[in-house]
Deep mutational scan, measured.
Amino acid sequence: TTFEIRVGDLRITLHNADEEEIRWAEEALRRGIHADEILRTLEERRR
């Protein structure tokens, strides 16, 4: 599944994310964390 998060002009697309990952990514985007860093962190958490 694919889920797109939008916060203002910012956007990130997550693939195969669970609800916790989606909530975490949305909050991180709101705090101004760059999408590349969010994706990198999620990848590390999945390992």
Rank of each mutant, 00 (worst) to 15 (best):
R23S: 08
F3P: 15
I38H: 00
G32N: 07
G32A: 04
R31H: 13
A25S: 04
E44W: 04
L39D: 02
E27Y: 04
T41I: 11
I12W: 03
R30W: 07
R23Q: 13
I22D: 00
E43I: 07
W24I: 08
T2S: 15
V7Y: 12
E27L: 06
L42F: 06
R6Y: 15
R46M: 06
L29Q: 02
E19G: 10
R11P: 01
I22Y: 06
G8A: 03
F3N: 15
D18Q: 09
D18V: 12
L39I: 07
E43K: 06
R31I: 12
G8E: 04
W24R: 02
L14H: 00
E19T: 10
G32I: 02
H15E: 05
I12E: 01
I12H: 01
E37V: 12
R40P: 03
A35P: 14
I33N: 05
R30E: 06
A35R: 04
D9N: 07
N16E: 06
E37D: 13
A17P: 14
W24F: 13
R6D: 15
E4K: 00
I12P: 00
R23P: 02
V7K: 00
I22G: 04
R47A: 10
L39Q: 05
L42H: 04
E21Q: 08
I12Q: 01
F3D: 15
T41P: 01
E44R: 07
E4N: 00
F3G: 15
R46K: 12
E27C: 14
L14C: 05
W24E: 03
L42E: 00
R45T: 09
L39A: 03
D9F: 03
E44M: 07
E21N: 03
T1N: 15
E4L: 01
G8Q: 02
F3R: 15
I33P: 01
E21K: 03
G8F: 01
I38F: 06
T1P: 15
I22C: 08
T41L: 10
L29T: 03
E37I: 12
N16W: 05
I38N: 00
W24D: 02
E27N: 09
D18H: 10
D18N: 13
I38S: 00
F3V: 15
T2C: 15
E43S: 11
R31L: 11
T1K: 14
L10E: 14
A25E: 00
E4A: 00
I33K: 09
E43Q: 07
E19N: 13
E44S: 09
R45V: 09
L39Y: 14
R23V: 11
A28R: 06
N16V: 06
T13C: 09
D9E: 10
L14K: 00
I12F: 04
E37G: 05
I33F: 09
R40A: 10
H34M: 12
R31A: 14
E21C: 13
